[in-house]
């Protein structure tokens, strides 16, 4: 999800055909693909995604090409006569077993070192414990005495009620705004400890490239690190069905330079 909310000019109830014909023309291409994101991990993942997409497209061109060629060339209506002796071809069959195997292993290998990186929690400078509740988050800066809850912002909450009469398009960051965002320093490896208090939730900010489940009774770990040159506000949501308001527990993370972050944290410590 990108930071910028896209303003839909189209009234929500636009007619069927209008939507169909105008969408491609007005399409915002960032809405077609995965975001590159603002961390090393998210860029790694984006690259892997694109590689696989291209490989799959290439294979699709070849296989679909063959199918389409057969459908055009060997039509009965063009007088094609069936060659009922074409039943086996050992070489061909071996080839299309072995070649895909090689391609697949080639696709899987790049994931190994990325995964090792993802699972390596060492060297983190800050640990934040994230607890999922039905339906809000709790953040605790471990060892720093700062903790708080983070819920869906009031404006979205009012608009999302059935029959509220409020057009979601008029609400800023509809369903992507919270009352109190998580604040993190940029350029720092941050370890998140994930757990939940009632049912399973999942913490996901697409721009950071990672998602992990928060399971009641257990601790999960993951790490994120926002690029030093990309302070900003990043938005995500709970990504595991957790009951009626699963769609209404967003995550907002404000990334600021370490100095600013320390100041913010000190101020919070004073308040608590």
């Amino acid at each position: 999800m990108s930071i910028v909310k896209r303003n839909s000019k189209l009234p929500a109830a636009a007619g069927a055909l209008a939507a169909l014909t105008t969408v491609p023309a007005r399409a915002d291409w960032s809405l077609l693909n995965m975001p590159k994101g603002v961390s090393e991990l998210s860029r790694d993942i984006y690259d892997m995604h694109m590689i696989m997409l291209w490989i799959c497209l290439a294979i699709a061109v070849v296989t679909f090409g063959a199918m389409i060629y057969a459908m055009i060339r060997f039509r009965k209506s063009r007088g094609a006569v069936a060659d009922t002796k074409l039943l086996h071809n050992a070489r061909l069959e071996a080839a299309w077993t072995i070649v895909p195997t090689i391609i697949l292993i080639g696709m899987a290998i790049p994931s190994v070192d990325k995964l090792i990186k993802i699972e390596d929690m060492s060297g983190s400078k800050l640990t934040i414990k994230v607890t999922g509740y039905q339906w809000y988050w709790h953040y605790e800066y471990l060892g720093r005495g700062v903790s708080f809850y983070s819920r869906l912002a009031r404006s979205s909450d009012l608009a999302r009620q059935r029959g509220s009469g409020i057009d979601p398009n008029t609400v800023d960051n509809y369903l992507l705004e919270v009352d109190k965002p998580l604040v993190v320093p940029t350029g720092t490896k941050i370890r998140l400890l994930l757990t939940a208090n009632d049912v399973i939730h999942a913490w996901w900010v697409p721009d950071f490239g990672m998602k992990r489940d928060a399971i009641p009774g257990f601790m999960n770990e993951m790490w994120v690190s926002v690029d030093a040159d990309k302070p900003g506000t990043y938005r995500g949501k709970c990504a595991e069905l957790c009951g009626a308001d699963h769609g209404f527990m967003p995550i907002v993370v404000v990334a600021m330079p370490p100095a600013e972050f320390e100041a913010w944290l000190a101020q919070q410590e004073l308040r608590q």
Binding site: M121, S122, S124, T127, G143, R191, E221
Partner: peptide
């Protein structure tokens, strides 16, 4: 919170 714990 000891960061030495390596594995969920």
């Amino acid at each position: 919170p000891v960061p030495a714990l390596r594995h969920q």
